[in-house]
């Protein structure tokens, strides 16, 4: 039974080691993911409702305000 996880690990390890073009592609993927999550998400794309309101009730009230803004003017 212990052989299975070891073989599985070896399968992935050998697979990654034998990559040629795959190494370049993985580098691109990692740079892209870094830019997306560590730069764009962190500094530019915060979830506005999550950040500015503490509860779902507050979020609902805010969206409802936006939906009815024209009517209350």
């Amino acid at each position: 039974m212990r052989a299975a996880p070891r073989e599985l690990f070896a399968f992935y390890r050998d697979g990654f080691r034998s990559m040629v073009l795959g190494r370049t592609l993985w580098k691109i993927i990692l740079v892209k993911l870094f830019l997306m999550f560590a730069v764009l998400k962190l500094f530019f794309f915060s979830n506005v409702l999550e950040k500015e309101f503490r509860s779902d009730a507050e979020r609902s009230a805010h969206v409802l305000d936006n939906l009815t803004r024209g009517a209350s003017k």
């Binding site: 592609l25 892209k32 915060s46 969206v63 936006n66």
Partner: peptide, 26 residues
């Protein structure tokens, strides 16, 4: 190659939902 370059590009749209389209998203 196509899969690797394209992977996770859809997640960017999810970022935009939360930031630019928060009323819709909610």
């Amino acid at each position: 190659i196509n899969f690797a370059i394209g992977v996770a590009t859809g997640i960017i749209m999810e970022f935009q939902f939360g930031t630019n389209w928060s009323n819709y998203s909610w």
